[in-house]
Amino acid sequence: MIEARGAALLYHDHGREVYACRDIGLRVSEGEFLGILGPSGSGKSSLLYMLSGLKTPTSGQVLVDGIDLASLGDEARSRLRLERFGFVFQHPHLLGYLTALENVVLGASGSGDRLVEAENRLSRLGLGDKMHRLPHELSGGERQRVCVARALMGSPEAIFADEPTAALDHANGHAVVDMLRQERGGGALVMVTHDPSMLDGADRIVTLVDGCLGEAAVAARPGIEPGTC
């Protein structure tokens, strides 16, 4: 469904060229749970941004259903993100002046039964009695669960999660990952983390080191192979 071909992301840092990712070849299949592991600064977030259309590769391509994302305009790429993708970021970003429910509604476009869906999502994530609270009235874990509910809105084909558990304790982190796994329906889940234990249920895990990719079969755990350039 989503495919990176020789994708690279190059930053210019005070005249110096820094590759956040280089020569990435990676497929995300329908419905799979793909884990991306790697140390800090290895380019995990950059890879996720390229796969989800938030960043355009400086060379190579990212294709969604065979269409090069770079060939799409800002408008079409935005629509793709809103309608077909879901996002959970490391920090539970919510709009402070909207209630949990209203924040979740933002996760899908169109009108109709968005409100009903949002209520259901929140209830299933255990926030049924808190959906009318403002974000500052929720705990960090609860806020991240609201973000999960928002990402699940509209049953996206792929959910991208960038260290969704980083700001949470171990138990809460696991709870959030489980929710993402169980509630995502048929959608793929691409999750970045530096904590291998969060990827227990993953179908496949790839590792990144210095922006280069290596693949490790789930079966091969715990000896996950590092990526090589």
Binding site: L80, R81, F87, L95, L106, G107
Partner: peptide, 11 residues
């Protein structure tokens, strides 16, 4: 920024 990341267009 958040809304744009989620998929709301610049327009």
């Amino acid at each position: 920024g958040l809304l744009q990341a989620l998929g709301y267009t610049r327009r």
